[in-house]
């Protein structure tokens, strides 16, 4: 039984990693086809010389950073407010927030595009950086709400009262105490927002206007022209970055957990 489980797990992991590994492997191939012609780093140097890709990378990072920052602030405030509603009103607000998560990306994308087009005519602007940013904040905020809400609910409310008791007004109590309690939720909301924003293609595709490029859009354009090992190189780099980040976060988490366990003992 144990052996069977191991084999099964290994098969699934193989299924999930094999395409990525093949991609990475062929990013070092000195040829444009999937036939091995020898080792090269040319595709990587090409990649860094491609100013369009570098530019898109910057755009992606800036959008992801700003969108998640804004979403974290908006979502945390929203979660605090929602938590103080009772009964039906609260369920209504939570569901309204979840609609954005549950509705298909493509519907969010086209509906925002409709609005931005109309607003663009009315207020004389073109879709681009700003509309993409607004769209990203829109789909990121519900995730922050989702992450922060349970933290608030499980927060020891008397910690907040203790701060009031010791002379804080409400704002001070929030700034000096409550925010520290919500930090883990806010952080994971931020992280989630950041990755979803980085990864998003569909919503960006519909709200970017004519010229604004993000990495996803860039990849889309490149893959549409089919087969360029430059993409393989890009995939490889992104994978390595993600992998390293995840491992670091995981190790950190584990250390924290160990400390917690020791404390508990």
């Amino acid at each position: 039984m144990k052996k069977l489980s191991k084999i099964y797990t290994a098969l699934i992991i193989f299924f999930m990693y094999m395409p990525i590994i093949v991609l990475i492997l062929f990013s070092f191939n000195d040829g444009k086809t999937m036939v091995w012609k020898g080792f090269t780093l040319n595709w990587y140097t090409d990649l860094f010389k491609d100013s369009q890709i570098i530019n898109s990378l910057w755009n992606t990072l800036i959008i992801a950073f700003l969108a998640s920052l804004f979403a974290t602030a908006l979502g945390t405030m929203a979660a605090i407010g929602i938590n103080n509603f009772k009964g039906r009103k609260r369920i209504l607000l939570q569901n309204a927030s979840n609609i954005e998560i549950l509705s298909p990306d493509i519907v969010t994308g086209v509906s925002l595009m409709l609005m931005f087009t109309l607003a663009g005519v009315a207020f004389n602007f073109k879709m681009g950086f700003l509309t993409v940013l607004l769209a990203h904040i829109t789909f990121c905020t519900p995730y922050v709400v989702l992450n922060v809400l349970p933290r608030i609910r499980h927060m020891d409310y008397s910690v907040y009262e203790a701060a009031l008791d010791l002379g804080c007004n409400q704002w001070q109590a929030f700034r000096k105490v409550v925010i520290h309690e919500l930090m883990p939720g806010m952080f994971s909301g931020f992280l989630m927002s950041f990755t979803f924003s980085m990864d998003d293609f569909v919503i960006t595709y519909f709200t970017r206007g004519a010229s604004f490029q993000t990495l996803s859009i860039q990849i889309y354009t490149m893959t549409h022209q089919r087969i360029s090992p430059k993409i393989n190189a890009l995939s490889a780099l992104m994978f390595v970055v993600v992998f390293v980040l995840m491992v670091i976060i995981n190790i950190k988490d584990r250390k924290l957990e160990k400390q917690k366990v020791q404390k508990a003992l």
């Binding site: 990525i20 991609l23 062929f26 990755t195 990864d199 990849i219 889309y220 993409i231 995939s235 992104m238």
Partner: peptide
């Protein structure tokens, strides 16, 4: 965490 398009593209290749 890999880009969605890249994952599909991997299968294309």
């Amino acid at each position: 965490w890999m880009n969605f398009l890249l994952r599909i593209y991997a299968w294309v290749t």
